[in-house]
């Protein structure tokens, strides 16, 4: 018999191995992230004071869009080559395997965005106090984006409609994270305590962690029928 942890880690390991063999795809969300943030001074103003004022929101919005861009591929490729069906026919609980896929997906899309964000903060003249809450918030926030995004990705897996429908489905769910995430940074910049806001962000992410694997597993069972 296969073991629960064996299956869980095999899924993560395989998805990471595939990502490492398509390093170009790995960089796509990062370039997108960078491009959006480069457009901001060009479109608004190069003045550091004005950039600093909008930096928290801009970085969060581009991080959201960057992870959204990569969400499409969470189940789609596996569906197309038939390995998703093999995953679903495992005697192991599906929600656990789905969670493993979400974790792997976050490691290759969310985490790079998080690690990249200080650089963008620098480029947008984000005040020093904002960097730590930005990093912390993005860790929690991108995790939530991957978790809830998985439900949308599972529902649309067989539709081949591109990411437009997927964005429409998950964007409303991302609203609280965006609000809490940006205001945590803003409060830190304004010299206020941001612990409470961060706690709320953590609560939203924890709630998604409880809900999303089950919802996504259920959504997959429906979604693969197209």
């Amino acid at each position: 018999m296969t073991s629960l942890s064996g299956a869980f880690f095999a899924v993560i390991q395989r998805d990471l191995a595939i990502a490492m063999r398509h390093r170009g795809d790995l960089l796509n969300p990062l370039f997108f992230f960078l491009i959006v943030v480069t457009l901001v001074p060009l479109g608004i103003s190069p003045e550091p004071a004005r950039l600093a004022a909008i930096a928290p929101g801009m970085i969060w919005i581009s991080a959201l869009l960057a992870t959204l861009l990569a969400l499409d591929n969470l189940f789609q490729a596996d569906f197309d080559d038939g390995s998703l069906v093999q995953l679903m026919l495992s005697p192991q609980p599906l929600w656990l395997l789905v969670l493993a896929k979400i974790i792997a997906h976050w490691l290759v899309t969310g985490l790079p965005v998080v690690l990249f964000s200080p650089l963008l903060g620098l480029m947008l003249s984000l005040p020093q106090a904002g960097f730590l809450p930005l990093l912390l918030g993005l860790v929690l926030g991108t995790a939530m984006f991957s978790l809830m995004g998985a439900v949308g990705a599972a529902l649309t897996v067989a539709l081949h409609k591109g990411s437009v429908l997927l964005s429409l489905l998950v964007m409303p769910l991302y609203v609280p994270v965006l609000i809490f995430g940006t205001s945590a940074v803003q409060r830190a910049v304004d010299g206020m305590n941001y612990g409470g806001v961060m706690a709320m962000l953590a609560a939203v992410t924890a709630f998604s962690l409880l809900l999303a694997p089950f919802a996504a597993a259920g959504a997959l069972k429906v979604g693969i029928n197209g």
Partner: peptide
Amino acid sequence: ILALVGTVNIPIIYKS
């Protein structure tokens, strides 16, 4: 499924 996920999220969205 989408409606149910939306339903549990609506209070969070409204509050936030």
